[in-house]
Write a protein that binds this DNA or RNA. Structure first.
Lengths: 346, 346
DNA sequence: TTATATCATTTAATCGATTAAGCAATCCAC
DNA sequence: GTGGATTGCTTAATCGATTAAATGATATAA
């Protein structure tokens, strides 16, 4: 049942050599001085047979696969899947395919997948790195493989990184709170030392100090898997223990969801009892009642840059292109959840 | 800089043949009667060198890749990305990798990607088919390649399909509306003749007829890309043109979002002015005010079945395993948006 | 006329594995 | 001690492409 037409079959049927067919198929007919007549004959026959070259064989020979491996923290996270979609679109236009996988921010999984990508000989890597895989990234770079990190990076590593100004994103959100006269502003985050979380926390502290406020930080406990129920409980306890809290900034989109649920269960009203801002915008946030203010990451721009930088690496493979960290700005989308009802124009 | 250790290098360094190394590495030492001593020597040396076999070469020879191609409508859709995540987890346990891609429900993109998957010699296919690719699916099956469709299927095709009972899902939602004494129940859907949408529409009509109600169907206009703004406008117009509508069922998760926004902009209150149920549950629905009732698809079960069936196909490759359509049940998650406020226990 | 270019295509090596078949050396039975 | 089995490994073909080098034919130049 399985039809396997190889380049040799084509060649045999036309009484030519496989090489000739290969040249024609790779658009090298002119360069290799294949006659117009021969070229047409081959092209026609190839089309008739519906022959498709075996890319595995091609890849074995050329070492190229026209595939880009993309490793994100979780494909189910709207932030990452949103970027994935745009990157995918870019890639197809450039005749590349994207293979995704999720790490769940686990070094072990990430290592395994990077290893699998290498085995598959992907041409480039787009990676949202979990902690502790510096060496693996470095190893890729040592072997001259194009790598672009995004969302976070390793300060010691001379990789190409696309990130947002997390510090400023949080800082702007805090300024907005302050401007609206909130005094006891909490910050809910996870106990991570990765750059993106570290910067967000620093942004918070900076704003707190600048305004002479006292910090109110809740780190949800570390767990292998983000545990929605657990986060909710912990945030509830935090709010009960700190009833003076009149505003709260969630450091990730899933924390915002857990937190909003906690707030709902406590019967607190947003924004009158407590104001809310989330890091990462979300299609749904405008629909909540009240709608949720958010620090929006420039998803389109991140995707564009990721692809652009990767393509640059792919092109100038030998002379290592000036690796750099590109920092994009976030945008505060002000909605109802962050300003006292009395201020709202109804 | 690039180190490329091949099986021949290993062999040469140990003064043995590549074949011997290959046998040992594939666990065929005993079968091929390689001495214990030799085996250990090879294993040790391989470990020391950190040699990793080239899977492209392996794949070329064996025709296997340990990769599964997964084609969904949109990786950014939480329904699909949720399933992707679970399937991925299963796959890793079985030493398979998943390559995702999105079709945007476009036949052309789907054909291209299926073609690319074939070129990559993936071992199996998990596909959410857009319309018009019956022939491509059939072609895969003709070549004895393991294929599992999910979410929707082609009635004429003897493929393995994992779907939910869309008819009953909608029907149960409608019964719930009726029980709560809603009389003018609208149904917002897309003009698709694919099985999943067809069955949902049929479920609606069945319930309408059974209860002697009059149908109120809005098909948003067809567009290449789901256009959130446009959907919203159309739903707004629909509601304005049919002010008697006291309940509405959205046939997809993104329609629900657009619809809820439309309702919000019209200043209607849910559920008192209009009750709402969405097809597909969502992490956020419990957080809306009011919370949104939804027809939840059994995401875990779908993922489990997809993987189980695919593995069955992969195993018993020659004797075509009894292809079948597996129908799973949905579950109505009743929340606030679908019952009049007066009924609620506060 | 001989040497040199140009043309159009083929030969054959190669990528890095797998695996059927082959071949010495040793062992065992009668 | 001769034939057959067993052991332990090697040879070489193969998967399906790419591509440098070779080839043979004709055309042009000196």
């Amino acid at each position: 049942m399985k039809k396997k037409v190889s380049i040799h079959d084509i060649a045999k049927q036309l009484n030519v050599s496989a090489a000739t067919v290969s040249f024609v198929l790779n658009g090298k007919a002119t360069e290799k001085r294949i006659s117009e007549e021969m070229e047409q004959k081959i092209l026609k026959h190839v089309k008739e047979l519906g022959y498709r070259p075996n890319r595995v064989a091609k890849s074995l020979r050329t070492g190229k696969s026209k595939i880009i491996g993309m490793l994100v923290e979780g494909i189910a996270d709207p932030f990452f899947s949103g970027i994935a979609r745009i990157v995918e679109e870019h890639a197809y236009k450039l005749d590349y395919k994207i293979f995704y996988a999720s790490t769940e921010n686990e070094p072990k999984i990430a290592k395994d997948i990077i290893s699998a990508f290498r085995d598959t000989q992907v041409d480039g890597y787009i990676i949202v790195p979990p902690p502790g895989i510096e060496d693996d990234i470095q190893a890729l770079m040592d072997d001259n493989l194009p790598v672009v990190l995004f969302d976070r990076y390793f300060p010691g590593l001379a990789s190409c990184n696309i990130v947002v100004d997390n510090f400023d994103g949080v800082y702007q959100a805090m300024r907005h709170f302050v401007k609206n006269e909130y005094k006891n502003i909490g910050f809910v985050t996870i106990p991570s030392t990765q750059t993106q979380m570290r910067d967000r926390l620093n942004g918070y502290h900076h704003a707190i100090n600048e305004n002479g406020l006292s910090p109110l930080v809740k780190m949800v406990s570390f767990n292998v898997k983000p545990d929605h129920e657990r986060y909710k409980q912990e945030i509830k306890h935090f709010l009960e223990a700190n009833p003076q809290t009149d505003a709260i900034l969630f450091a990730t989109n899933y924390l915002a969801i857990s937190g909003l649920e906690a707030i709902k269960q406590l019967g607190l009203s947003v924004p009158d009892d407590i104001a809310v801002i989330g890091f990462d915008d979300n299609t749904h946030f405008s629909l909540f009642s009240p709608s949720i203010t958010a620090v929006a990451q420039p998803v389109q721009e991140i995707s564009d840059q990721v692809m652009q930088q990767l393509m640059a690496c792919l092109a100038g493979n030998e002379k290592a292109p000036a690796k750099q960290t590109i920092v994009l700005q976030t945008k505060l989308i002000i909605r109802e959840s962050s300003q006292k009802t009395s201020y709202l124009v109804r």
